[in-house]
């Protein structure tokens, strides 16, 4: 078992999607405890990938490859997770998108990828997403977080409008809000009453997991 956990961890660090998928399948075939394999194997791997990125050891495509390998493993294990006690809604649901008027997409997609790789359920609304769409989708999905990207000073106010709409719909207590994108900052997040700011995909994961600060 210990060896298996180590292999799972290493497959993610190596960004070896075929291997991680194979190991995930093996987990099910051998009837190994799914939660433990995820938490002490694969998640350890993606955490290490995140750490290496934070420390400047990895470059961006390597981070993506690690996340891809993780997604492959999770795709195999997720159905089994549904039937395990404590396996459902383990980390929560994030609704993510780039705010209306802003068609930048790739940074937000990276954040969505890293969140999904870390086990979160992610609804990616794409770019140029209307304020109401964020709020409606979060309500409909029972989301725990809304993550809003804005890459221009001219589109940042839309992030504030999402929060205002949540308040107007009396949903603010149910959903946390994270903002990101080049012109955003901790100060901006605090000014508009967001729950946090994330400067990159790894920081976004840490924020949602409550590991900030």
């Amino acid at each position: 078992m210990k060896e298996h956990l180590g292999s799972c961890r290493q497959a993610i660090i190596d960004g070896d999607a075929e291997k991680s998928e194979e190991l995930a399948k093996l987990t099910l075939e051998k009837g190994m405890p799914v939660l433990e394999v995820i938490d002490r194997g694969f998640v350890e791997g993606i955490r290490e990938v995140g750490r290496l990125w934070e420390e400047g050891e990895l470059f961006l495509p390597e981070l993506v490859i690690g996340a891809d390998a993780m997604k492959k493993a999770m795709a195999v294990l997720r159905p089994a997770l549904e039937s395990v006690e404590g396996g459902q809604d383990r980390l929560g649901h994030v609704v993510i998108g780039t705010i209306e008027g802003d068609i930048h997409d790739i940074g937000k997609t990276l954040v969505a990828t890293m969140l999904a790789a870390n086990g979160f359920e992610v609804t990616d609304l794409g770019a140029d997403v209307p304020v109401a769409k964020f709020v409606e989708t979060a309500a409909e999905k029972g989301a725990d977080w809304i993550a809003i990207s804005a890459l221009l000073t001219t589109t940042m106010p839309g992030q504030k409008r999402v929060i205002e709409r949540l308040e107007a719909k009396s949903l603010r207590g149910d959903v946390k809000v994270m903002v990101g994108g080049a012109p955003c900052s901790e100060e901006w997040a605090s000014e508009i009453g967001a729950d946090g700011y994330a400067g990159d995909a790894v920081a976004a994961v840490a924020l949602v997991k409550g590991q900030t600060g």
Partner: peptide, 9 residues
Amino acid sequence: PAAAAVGKV
């Protein structure tokens, strides 16, 4: 390269 993934990159 830092990781085994570099070939893919």
